[in-house]
């Protein structure tokens, strides 16, 4: 749950929410409906999203190297999808982002990022992609930034 919604719920322990606060909370939960639909797309289309990516990089390295690189993206995408449902970038950063940021950047990551982004845009479409895009940016930064 994102910080704003959590703060509102904490506030509601002490007093009734003001109309404006109630409206914010309402928007958060209403938005969750759509976000869960996008999550469901990502969950059910996982293989369809990754197969074309794997096909396009299959000659760039040996199978183990490719699978290791793809595995990181599969893990990060699952984490980013959950963070999107809760509209909580901090959740992604704490549960998944820092883990991947602490590892050395894989040489295949930039290419996978480029291909995967195109796939995600196609699968999620004009309605779903904008909801996921901020979390995509976050996961891409974590995986593609060079680590020391």
């Amino acid at each position: 749950m994102n910080r704003t919604a959590l703060n509102l719920l904490n506030t509601a322990e002490e007093r009734y929410l003001e109309a404006e606060e109630q409206q914010q909370l309402w928007q958060y939960f209403q938005g969750m409906n759509t976000r869960i639909k996008v999550y469901e797309e990502l969950r059910s289309q996982e293989a369809q999203i990754f197969r074309p990516v794997a096909r396009q990089i299959q000659n760039t390295a040996d199978e183990t190297t490719i699978l290791t690189a793809l595995r990181a993206w599969v893990g990060a995408l699952r984490g980013a999808a959950l963070a999107m449902v809760l509209d909580d970038p901090e959740l992604f950063q704490q549960r998944v982002g820092e883990w991947y940021q602490a590892r050395p950047a894989h040489p295949l990551h930039p290419k996978i990022a480029q291909l995967l982004k195109a796939q995600l845009k196609t699968v999620l479409g004009a309605q779903g992609w904008p909801l996921f895009a901020p979390f995509w940016e976050q996961m891409q930064r974590c995986l593609c930034t060079a680590h020391t």
């Binding site: 996982e46 293989a47 990754f50 197969r51 794997a54 299959q58 199978e63 490719i66 699978l67 793809l70 595995r71 990181a72 599969v74 893990g75 699952r78 984490g79 704490q94 549960r95 998944v96 820092e98 883990w99 991947y100």
Partner: peptide, 17 residues
Amino acid sequence: MDLEALFSQPVPGDYFA
């Protein structure tokens, strides 16, 4: 390339998250 195994397994992240 065995992608099925990739999708059917959990991908562990940060144990101490």
